[in-house]
């Protein structure tokens, strides 16, 4: 096994180009589990932990660029006010020890449908920047990034550079169901983002399909009712029945299976409830 440790982004991309099978490692919270459990023996480990460019975030022209190496702990501490949905999700990731090491970029790289950062990023309409030495940078909208269970849109020579998303322009919420009150992998999860300036509702579903999903019908339905009834202006909450219907549409968008963490029907049911509750909170938050 070879261990590569580039210290700049350019070196990192060159390394990935030279060794397309290299497994990138950042906080190690996914990769090392597979190594320790004897599930994975890559020929090359590519440590991105020394790449300074990945560890920064910046605000630029109304958008935030969050480097792929920013840890969950920093998301909570430094970006919580601007990205409340992502910060809520980050707070549910593993444990303090995991949040100190795990990164949003790592979550994207692993592309597990259970990854906690996917739903809030989908809900907020994030765009991911990936890059290769040969072709430079390109941007992939979050909803086009997830191709299958633990499969994403990265080419073999590409690495994830950053996440672009706008600071919240309305309430954002995240909820996750698991049978333990801490340190639990999502049996299913849901994120909602209210954008009061664009007058849209965003959604993200975790652990209830082969990939993280969105619920476009639910988004359009709720935004439509709010617009039609003048609730953007009034700040009033939609009727209970509307929020109920939103929850049901969220559940309809899921494609869950039965597995060791939950049944498909429970996942749908939980999404109905979480959809209704989180939408209520998010609409209340941002008034």
């Amino acid at each position: 096994m070879e261990f590569l440790q580039p210290s700049t982004w350019e070196e990192a991309l060159a390394a990935k180009a030279a060794f397309p099978d290299a497994v990138p490692i950042q906080g190690g919270t996914d990769v090392m589990v597979e190594m320790n459990f004897d599930r994975r023996r890559p020929d090359v480990l590519l440590d991105l932990g020394r790449v300074r460019e990945l560890a920064d975030w910046a605000s630029d022209a109304g958008s935030l660029r969050v480097g792929a190496g920013v840890t969950y702990a920093r998301v909570i501490a430094e970006l919580g006010a601007m990205l409340p949905g992502l910060a809520l999700a980050a707070r549910t990731v593993g444990s303090p020890q995991i949040r100190n090491r795990g990164t949003v970029g790592g979550n994207l790289g692993a592309a597990s449908p259970a990854g906690d950062s996917h739903p809030p990023l989908l809900a907020a309409g994030a765009v991911y920047e990936v890059a290769s030495a040969a072709r430079g940078a390109r941007r992939i909208p979050a909803h086009e990034f997830y191709l299958g269970p633990k499969r994403n849109a990265l080419e073999p020579d590409e690495l994830i550079a950053a996440i672009y998303l706008a600071p919240a322009a309305g309430g954002q919420q995240f909820a996750k169901v698991g049978t333990r009150n801490a340190m639990v992998i999502a049996a299913c999860s849901f994120a909602v983002a209210v954008d009061r300036s664009a007058r849209t509702i965003g959604t993200g579903i975790g652990s209830a399909g082969p990939t993280p999903l969105q619920a476009p019908d639910a988004e359009r339905y709720l935004a439509g009712v709010i617009t039609d009834e003048g609730l953007w202006e009034s700040g009033r909450l939609p009727d209970e029945a509307v929020l109920e219907r939103f929850g049901a549409l969220v559940a309809d968008a899921a494609r869950p299976i039965d597995d060791v963490r939950a049944t498909a029907s429970y996942r749908r049911h939980a999404l109905t409830v979480m959809g209704r509750r989180t939408a209520t909170w998010a609409l209340r938050d941002g008034r």
Binding site: G28, N36, R101
Partner: peptide, 18 residues
């Protein structure tokens, strides 16, 4: 649990080279 450069981490998830 150990401190790695001042951060509390699980040392089982830190690759040696890191």
């Amino acid at each position: 649990s150990v401190y790695l450069n001042g951060n509390l981490v699980c040392s089982c998830l830190v690759a040696a080279g890191q």
